[in-house]
Design a protein around this nucleic acid. Sequence first.
DNA 1: TCTGAAATTTCTCAGCA
DNA 2: TGCTGAGAAATTTCAGA
Lengths: 146, 146
Amino acid sequence: MDTIDRDIIGCLTRDARATYAEIGQQVGLSAPGVKRRVDAMRSRGQIRGFTALIDPSALGWTTEAYVEVYYDGNVSAKELKRNLEQIPQVVGAWTVAGNADAIVHVMATSMGEIEEVVERMREHAKVERTRSAIVMSRLFERSRTR
Amino acid sequence: MDTIDRDIIGCLTRDARATYAEIGQQVGLSAPGVKRRVDAMRSRGQIRGFTALIDPSALGWTTEAYVEVYYDGNVSAKELKRNLEQIPQVVGAWTVAGNADAIVHVMATSMGEIEEVVERMREHAKVERTRSAIVMSRLFERSRTR
DNA sequence: TCTGAAATTTCTCAGCA
DNA sequence: TGCTGAGAAATTTCAGA
């Protein structure tokens, strides 16, 4: 992981469909050289994959919320993951240190669906309470290369 | 935006570097057919772009937090965006309805850097208070095609 | 162990039916 | 939409620093 690897990551986060030759021109390497480094970073797990950035509203996901979950007693991260992954509207979840125990990112097609998801999360015996923040507007979201 | 478009989006979120021929095989279309649909979805803004999924720790981003920001009086989304975009450690921000006014996603190389960022956010005259949740573990995060 | 050059296979992307 | 073909890219192999 040197400067060239970082530059390659920068190119790929800006456009994951760029050709190896294009990337090579930007980082000063031949196309095979770029491919070898990309393959190596993938096998080391530094690059997890490539994905498309989709406008959520294009798929009918018009409502978005962040839900803080407070648990009664200790819950393992594994148990949390198992429970939350079963709910398709949950697109991300993190355990946190702070007021709450976990933050859950929910995307749905309507406010009613958000309500249902929160209800479903609360069914879990150990959930003491939840605190929701409905997203009004996404100000921005950027890829993490600085 | 029909079933085939949705299937194409599904393929691209799973692997943005898949060839048009590979995608075509999965959705039952010829390679040129897939390209035409992808181009159309890009020009309609339904596909915003393609990016690489990077393991944050590979870049030295070891500390992550969600910060709720409470404002004193009204602040426009435009003003918020302008202020938060200037802080490179802020990787995402959303205005919300609920207890707080905005949720800010921060990634940094150390706890000290998180502290600095929060301080910097509080310098904004209209920030009344903040409430931070340091991420302990990322349980999962998935692309949004269901 | 890293690189670039060359050769082969494969993909892209117009134009056309 | 699918087909075609010229051009471009990917990917393997090979040899040099």
